[in-house]
């Protein structure tokens, strides 16, 4: 990286050495205050309540926990939730990247409106999204009807419907993580590549893509993690058939409906563990990619 901007050179200095606990204690103040506040707030709002969940599940004991979580029904729902979230996140990774690319690199009429529209899934209540999507994709809906009549293709109340809902809720994560990185990519790098004789394709795959990849992975991971837990928008379009279109959060609701708080907490804890490990791996991976790229 010949012509890196100052921010790029500043980064490895701030992130390079992890040998001591603090990097620059003498210059920048507020470490104790901010870390203390962050940990306290995190502890009170996130960790304490989540601990209540784990304690509740722990009340079952190992055997009870195992029995609550490792049943064919829960396993099937695990596959549905995680599998279809993966599909949704993959769709988002591809198309979200294209959307971010188009929004950053090209100009066309109505671009700002399109840019604003991307955040809609954050803002629209998930239940409304679910109702709207099931109305659209039902066999008598605007989109579902032509699909069904022309191709005999059913979307709502099938796994495809769930994937569509999960794509909807996860889309902004990919676009909004990739977009700023694309924007900040110094044009000098691409210019240098081209001046050295690289084709457009080579420039993209060797220069642009590696720079954007960490952000794309983050977006993918967030979109995926969000999808696994999603309830409101999926429940209307899923069909909820046991073993086929039954998602994990619905199983939790079903357990609660039987006043089985501990069982619900057990499934919730299992979901939480899987999500946590996945996010942690991705954050470490991203940290690693970032420091490699910055070098």
């Amino acid at each position: 990286m010949v012509a890196a901007s100052s921010s790029d050179t500043a980064f490895p200095r701030a992130g390079g050495a992890v040998t001591s606990i603090l990097k620059k204690p003498s210059v920048i103040p507020g470490f104790g205050l901010t870390l203390g506040f962050t940990l306290t707030y995190l502890g009170l709002i996130v960790l304490l309540p989540l601990a209540a969940l784990v304690v509740k599940a722990g009340g079952l004991g190992w055997f009870g926990f195992w029995n609550a979580v490792f049943t064919p029904r829960v396993w099937a729902a695990f596959q549905v939730s995680f599998g279809l979230s993966l599909v949704g996140a993959a769709i988002n990774a591809v198309f979200g990247f294209v959307v971010a690319w188009v929004l950053v690199r090209y100009s066309f009429p109505g671009k700002r409106l399109v840019d604003a529209l991307v955040d809609l899934p954050f803002a629209l209540p998930t239940a409304v999204a679910g109702i709207a999507l099931s109305a659209l994709y039902a066999p008598n809906g605007w989109v579902g009807k032509p699909l069904n009549e022309l191709f005999g293709f059913k979307v709502a109340f099938t796994p495809i419907g769930i994937a569509i809902a999960l794509t909807f809720v996860g889309l902004p994560f990919v676009v909004r993580t990739v977009q700023p990185i694309l924007q900040d990519l110094p044009p000098e790098e691409e210019e240098a590549a081209v001046s050295l004789g690289a084709t457009r394709g080579q420039t993209f795959w060797r220069v642009v893509f590696p720079a954007v990849l960490p952000a794309l992975v983050t977006g993918f991971a967030l979109s995926f993690a969000r999808g696994v837990g999603e309830y409101g928008s999926v429940i209307f379009i899923a069909g909820n058939m046991p073993g086929l279109t039954e998602i994990l959060p619905l199983l939790i609701v079903i357990k609660l409906e039987q006043y089985d708080y501990a069982g619900a907490a057990a499934v919730g804890t299992a979901m939480l563990l899987v999500s946590f490990v996945m996010l942690l791996i991705l954050n470490i991976l991203q940290h690693w990619m970032r420091s490699r790229h910055a070098r």
Binding site: V228, G229, Y231, L248, P249, I252, S275, N283
Partner: peptide
């Protein structure tokens, strides 16, 4: 720490109420 900050994104809304 960053992962813990991200965690609420991945907690199912059903669980976030339940806790």
């Amino acid at each position: 720490l960053i992962t813990l900050i991200d965690l609420p994104f991945s907690v199912s809304p059903v669980i976030s109420g339940l806790i």
